[in-house]
Design a protein around this nucleic acid. Structure first.
Lengths: 106, 106
DNA sequence: TTATTACTTGGCTATATTGGCAAGCATTGT
DNA sequence: ACAATGCTTGCCAATATAGCCAAGTAATAA
């Protein structure tokens, strides 16, 4: 494994990692329906405003969302909508798990 | 946000999280070309065998790979090949980032 | 100018993740 | 039975992440 190739995988991993948190996935899901201010996302996930802000910074640094200050509010929107496609596959994984759990129980 | 909905996002997050590590992404990529024993994956990522084994456990618990002991070796293979589709989108994010970096520099 | 709103950042603690080493466990070979 | 191979697990230290509170910043309102 070359160094450059390893860096490629590290760059990819940073993006996947940014999506590896329930609150951040909720926000991405919500942003798929249009831009939202931080306060709206805060109400959605029900955490401290500072916590939500930091989660959004993670998504922003990963290049998944972008922000836009208008007046006293900051609006975030999905920059790369294709991340929504991930959910289809993720649901397939979860369906597999459910099937296996049933097989194990039955 | 309901509790059950939150659990859904937590389940999804666990899967994304499992893919949020360079070594694990390398292994997934390698497994996309067919099953591999732990020792082959170890050579690929260049880490301790125990480390590789633990990474594989993470992928297995997430439902992404499955294993199969044959003789003294354990072979892993991709259980949900659709995770490979993630890379297309991830590359789009990275291309975006590169474009912006260039814009910032120029 | 002062106050308010909306958000970000710093500082902190609690918890989780990573990775190596050493020890353990199967399986195969002698 | 004993050794060797391939892998997993337990333990531990280093590092990263998550979350809240408090303090700071920027835009608007009074």
């Amino acid at each position: 494994m070359e160094a450059s190739e390893k860096e490629t995988f590290e760059a990819r991993a940073r993006i996947m990692k940014a999506l590896g948190h329930a609150s951040r996935l909720m926000m991405v899901d919500e942003l798929s329906r249009g831009e939202r201010c931080v306060c709206e996302l805060r109400a959605l996930v029900g955490a401290d405003l500072s916590t939500v802000s930091k989660h959004l910074t993670v998504l922003k640094n990963a290049g998944i969302v972008e922000d836009d200050k208008r007046g006293v509010q900051v609006f975030y929107r999905l920059k790369v909508p294709c991340v929504l496609n991930f959910f289809t596959c993720v649901e397939a994984v979860l369906a597999n798990q459910a099937r296996e759990a049933a097989r194990h129980a039955g």
